Computed example of a mutant assay.
Amino acid sequence: MKISKTITFMLLLLLLGINSYAKVKQLNVPKITQALAAHYGPNAKQRVILWFRLLDQARGLDEKGKLLKVNVFFNKYSYIPDMKLWGHHNYWASPMEFIGVGAGDCEDFSIAKYFTLLQLGVAEDKLRIAMVRAPKLSQNHMVLTYYEQPSSVPFVLDNLDLDVKRASQRPDLIPVYSFNGRQLWLNKKKAQGVLAGSSNQLTLWNDLQDRLGVDKLNIPILNLESL
């Protein structure tokens, strides 16, 4: 489905900082929601409206409040493995794809939370998407982590837990590596990890950024053209 450049431009303005719900309404959000509904079905329209409201309601909260609100918001979505949902063994969905279908796996939860918190003004340097081992699940798992300070033990946003807890309170998760829009770390403990270069080394992250339309200023844009 091809979505008009006008709608894409309106969403670009939203993601560059015009994300008060009142201002969103002025940008003709019905066209955006109708486009998602046409592609994903009528329930997608309500989900994206609720996402816009989340941005408006959480904007005035402190950062811990934003973490809690975003974690609870997305954890209401359904967990569905990639193969069943997308027909691929490992597919990292964009936030609009995730919101559109209202379901995904741990990577999709973490990515949607990451980009939503960026739009709420949380600094990218405080956020890292983290791959961990979860022995109880007998598989790797992905979560979002938030660092109050560079050397602090991070908070963990996990689709398996509505509470936002310190990594030290999650002995069930063993860190492997983490990344944000710029850097990649190899994790050897619950805190900082060892800087290992650019996150562009991750093929699936590069593929996701191509679909997002990340521009030269590293501003993440949810690109509806790809729907």
Rank of each mutant, 00 (worst) to 15 (best):
Q57T: 13
G121C: 01
Y91M: 15
E97Y: 03
N206E: 07
Y146W: 07
F109W: 07
L27N: 10
L36F: 08
R211Q: 06
D172H: 00
S20D: 04
R211S: 07
K190D: 13
I49T: 11
L120G: 01
D210T: 14
Q46K: 10
T145P: 09
Q57A: 15
S199E: 04
I3E: 04
P81F: 13
W92H: 11
P171H: 08
N43G: 05
I221L: 10
L208F: 10
W51N: 00
N180F: 12
I129V: 15
K216Q: 08
L186S: 11
L67M: 03
P81R: 14
L212E: 08
K189V: 02
N206W: 06
D161F: 00
S110I: 05
L137E: 05
A123D: 09
Y77F: 04
K31N: 00
V164A: 03
A167I: 06
S110N: 06
I99W: 00
G104P: 00
G193W: 01
G60P: 02
W205F: 13
L157C: 03
L55N: 04
Y91C: 14
T33E: 08
L11E: 12
N28T: 09
F115H: 06
L173D: 10
G197V: 11
I18D: 10
N28R: 13
Q119D: 06
Q201H: 13
K66G: 11
L162H: 10
K136P: 02
L36S: 06
S152D: 06
K64M: 14
E124D: 14
F98A: 00
M142K: 04
Q169M: 07
P135D: 01
K76N: 14
A103W: 04
C106A: 14
Q149D: 15
K45Q: 14
G121V: 00
L137H: 04
V70F: 03
V194Q: 14
